[in-house]
Design a binder for these strands. Sequence first.
DNA 1: TTCAGGTACTGACCGCCGGTCACTTGGCGA
DNA 2: TCGCCAAGTGACCGGCGGTCAGTACCTGAA
Lengths: 199, 199
Amino acid sequence: MILSAARDMIDEVGLDGVTMGALAKRAGLAKGTLYLYVRSKEELYLLLFIEAMDAVVTQFKHRARPGDSAAQLAHLMTLNAQTTPLFLPLYARLIAVIEANVADEPLFAAKRRLIALGHEWGAHLAVVTGVGPDQAEPLARTITMTMLGAAQFDISAQRDPQGLPDDMREAFASHAFAPSFEPSARLILEAVMSPRRQG
Amino acid sequence: MILSAARDMIDEVGLDGVTMGALAKRAGLAKGTLYLYVRSKEELYLLLFIEAMDAVVTQFKHRARPGDSAAQLAHLMTLNAQTTPLFLPLYARLIAVIEANVADEPLFAAKRRLIALGHEWGAHLAVVTGVGPDQAEPLARTITMTMLGAAQFDISAQRDPQGLPDDMREAFASHAFAPSFEPSARLILEAVMSPRRQG
DNA sequence: TTCAGGTACTGACCGCCGGTCACTTGGCGA
DNA sequence: TCGCCAAGTGACCGGCGGTCAGTACCTGAA
């Protein structure tokens, strides 16, 4: 399976280290064969991201419950994003790198699926936070954007701290996903939850 | 001047349409000469981004005043980011694209400068919002990440809506920077400002 | 006036990579 | 046995970022 070979390869050499030639060889195919199944490298990444996003949404619907506190929800979202393989690095590159190089037709199909997943997630978020219908959408958008920003930051935090000057090591480390995202998510969730109920 | 030629060229062909060969020709230089002044394409972008970030911070320090409401501040930040040339597209690509391909030494120098600018901005934000010292840093980080996410979204919103299916046109348009960022920024600012004062 | 040295500049060239396509292979039904 | 077609192949292409041996020119000393 191509997707599985891609996952393995990304594990080993990182997202930016994947080349289609090497991936084909690894999957036991010729380069041309690979392109029978996937129209471009970015389309492949898009497929992988949809899988990851699906997993994140499914897990969130499973785990988040009405009555959870803002802190609990923020923590759950953080773990969720962080433990789903490939979710963060692909999310960080989704728009600037991946969408920029996918043909229209598969792009639209992917976007529709992602938007649908986003709505599922947002709807569940509205339920568990108990926010009113007018606040549900801005809340979901705000959390989404914050997560997208935190995913960016996380890229630089992945860098090997070996040999970095002290101030840089600290700067990189402080941009890791969890310490960036979780407090912000909590702040946002508390803002919309506190008028109604808390905890 | 190389930076100026780069700005012009980005205006015309977009960030992803710039090639070093064409840029050199446009600046009246040979490719090799260009590389005497800039070690890589991404280093050039990093220089441009530092300029843009500097402008944004300077403007924010000039325009934001204690007593401004959350809505006013959110609006000001939005305009600020949007009207500073190249700020948003470069910000969106800063980590995943630009930082990923710059040599250590210039990267560290740039990061130090950007971190210093970020602190200036955050300090002024703390003053105008009047938040306590314990809340200042998470507030600045949250707004920063949200802006980073919104800058991402804005990339896809830049796409020419000609010939897009209706649902996609709507989806792309709704991701533009202002409608994404401003309500979220307002939500976040209100959350930290309301306990103390408002307006 | 000549020449050595150094600096700014040049552009042909390289390696790499994503993507293509004319061709081969192999299995299956007639 | 043979023809056909789907699946697969890998040499090849174009374009790009980046390099480097060489050139042009100026200056100041002899």
